[in-house]
């Protein structure tokens, strides 16, 4: 642990999902309040484990995203209720995060609570923030980030998710994943509640992070500490849990369904769930013969129709290292 590390934590704060999660029918009910108390312990541990470690917390609320806390932008502290028995940085983090979440949740009215959460906004904001702290730019002469490159932190993003996949955000999430790859940012995902999300699985896989589905939700803090605390460099030496299989499915552009077999426009690579005569993205018209052939081969039988064999128009002989030599 010679290099300081930075964690941008993204909290999925969908009120309806947290309500479902706290219902006593669940095998291990977890309420937002007990989640937050375990999370704060984890955040405090991160700050305490090395002096130079930095932290940012983003909240993904229904249809909006907010930066809740960042250690590089200390706002004016309200110093009236300082608890002398508490390490001051802990108190700052804890009170700031909790009060901001309460403010935001309070300001939501009933109709907004069901809206899908602003995960993309939170993810892109985290990336912009990380871009800012790892590339202290010359054009910005603020003294806060004038560190020399050796002390710049190792950045990573931790997503704590409770909502299901939002298929309309397929493209922006993929774009965020590729920018994380460019910045060499690892994305860890801890799925606290709800079904597995295909997109976050891919995010963790493509950036070299770990995706963990929380079975025992009463052991949240232990999971966080054991698998998300070690920096990516340390994980080569330790065995951290990894996901078993990765689902590479995509969302179609027409209905935002998640599909495993899609029809792809050869010009712009838009994905459709059924053969379409015209590409809705680039307005290319497809030959009628192709449509007939694809439609004929569509009903999934034991043996695909002849047309299907011709359909895959790729270049099997030269593609990739998979062909036998």
């Amino acid at each position: 642990m010679d290099k300081p590390s930075h964690i941008s934590v993204i909290l999925d704060l969908s009120p309806s999902q947290w309500h479902l999660s706290s219902l006593p029918e669940n095998p291990h009910p977890l309420s937002l309040r007990s989640f937050l108390s375990q999370l704060l312990a984890f955040l405090n541990l991160h700050i305490a484990s090395k002096h130079e470690n930095t932290l940012a917390v983003f909240g993904a609320f229904p249809s909006k995203s907010v930066m809740l806390y960042s250690s590089t932008d200390p706002e004016a502290d309200n110093t009236e209720n300082v608890n002398p028995n508490m390490y001051h940085p802990f108190q700052v983090v804890d009170s700031r995060v909790v009060t901001r979440i309460e403010e935001e949740l309070e300001s939501l009215d009933q109709s907004e609570e069901e809206a899908p959460i602003g995960l993309v906004g939170a993810l892109t904001k985290a990336l912009c923030y990380i871009n800012r702290i790892i590339h202290p730019s010359a054009s910005q002469s603020s003294g806060t980030t004038s560190e020399d490159p050796t002390t710049l932190p190792d950045p990573r993003i931790l997503v704590l998710s409770v909502s299901p996949d939002l298929s309309t955000s397929y493209i922006p999430i993929m774009n965020s994943i590729f920018s994380a790859q460019k910045l060499k940012v690892v994305i860890d995902v801890c799925k606290v509640y709800g079904p597995d999300t295909v997109f976050l699985e891919q995010a963790a896989h493509l950036t070299g992070g770990s995706y963990i589905y929380l079975d025992r939700r009463d052991a949240l803090l232990q999971h966080l500490i054991m698998s998300h605390m070690p920096s990516p460099a340390l994980r080569k030496l330790m065995t951290v849990p990894t996901q078993d299989k990765i689902d590479f499915r995509a969302a179609c552009f027409c209905h935002k369904n998640i599909v495993d077999i899609g029809f792809v426009c050869s010009v712009c690579l838009s994905i459709f769930c059924a053969p379409v005569p015209v590409c809705s993205t680039c307005r290319t018209k497809f030959p009628i013969k192709t449509l007939q052939r694809l439609n004929a081969s569509r009903p999934p039988g034991l043996k695909p129709a002849n047309g299907a064999l011709k359909t895959a128009p790729s270049t099997p002989h030269t593609r990739g290292p998979s062909t036998p030599r």
Binding site: A250, F272, A312, P313
Partner: peptide, 18 residues
């Protein structure tokens, strides 16, 4: 309408085994 070069391709998205 006559852009013969454009085509619709059927593609499958797999599941990766660990």
């Amino acid at each position: 309408a006559t852009n013969l070069a454009a085509d619709l391709m059927m593609m499958g998205f797999p599941v990766r085994l660990p």
